[in-house]
Design a protein around this nucleic acid. Structure first.
Lengths: 149, 149
DNA sequence: CACTGTCTCTACCGATTAAATCGAGATTAA
DNA sequence: TTAATCTCGATTTAATCGGTAGAGACAGTG
């Protein structure tokens, strides 16, 4: 049920680029190190993100990656959807394979899944990378909050 | 990212038992047929649910399964958690493997994941099987709503 | 008791997916 | 030309998912 490692790497990479926006291209290696992502794997991910219009690349020496859009216009939801597909909590809600469910037509859970999806979307689509960067800068000023129970 | 098939089978099975609560034990075969679940697989699931205290079993002839508690006290969230583990959107939030994350201590996404988890919990923990059964009965009276886009 | 229908338990299997790696190539700056 | 960098597809490896199998335990019936 959780978000895949790959998707987390993707958002972390975009986050890192957001932090460095305006400072020229960032090499894959730097992103990999800063965010603790296997470099070879990150190559694939960034390349795919480029196809999605999230990042741009510069080749050759002094090359690297840049955010393709202002961080204020980039939501976590958009990135997650791009790498993971719909934010649907169950397969049968995922558009492409509707009708695959034997319960289709009278599924008593449909509206529940729909509510869950809306709840998730509400969180992810309302969070921009700009906010995340700002929030991190803020938290660096103050003592970290411990979320342990 | 979606909820596993197994977990969906589990909630469907519990739902079926909720519908039949008060009518004696229901055989695995009947549940399997009513909810379109592979019977052999359902055996495992129900047995596991028994261990979790969600259902009770009666062996021998005229045996079967019963809901262990009133449907009003059984939430979808409780069942999902039992079969799938924590409702956490990412591994590193899942209690058991905290500290496995290389970002631990200063992860800029922690509060985001926490909000996502809360949102999901809000939906799943507030929905009881009693409501689902009632809702289905209601919808059977009226024409089905088509969620297709 | 023997029989039958039911749940119980543990192991197993095949396919798919996730995560990561690799290698050879293309591009650019110096 | 050389070195640094992205590009792209293929490959590997390991885990997980969905499902199956079979022997056994238990309870009621005649």
């Amino acid at each position: 049920m959780p978000i895949s490692q790959k998707a987390q790497y993707a958002v972390r990479a975009v986050f890192e680029l957001a932090k460095r926006q305006g400072a020229g291209a960032t090499k894959i290696g730097e992103i990999a190190e800063a965010q603790a992502i296997p470099q070879r794997f990150l190559e694939n991910i960034l390349n795919s993100l480029k196809g999605g219009g999230f990042v741009e690349s510069v080749r050759g020496k002094d090359g690297g990656y840049l955010l393709a859009r202002p961080a204020k216009e980039l939501t976590v939801g958009a990135v997650l959807r791009f790498v993971e597909g719909p934010l649907a909590p169950v397969e049968c809600m995922a558009g492409n394979k509707k009708g695959s469910c034997p319960m289709y037509g009278g599924c008593p859970f449909l509206s529940l899944w729909a509510r869950a999806e809306k709840a998730l979307e509400g969180v992810y689509d309302s969070t921009t990378f700009y906010e995340l960067v700002a929030q991190e800068a803020e938290e660096r000023r103050k003592p970290a909050v411990d979320f342990t129970i």
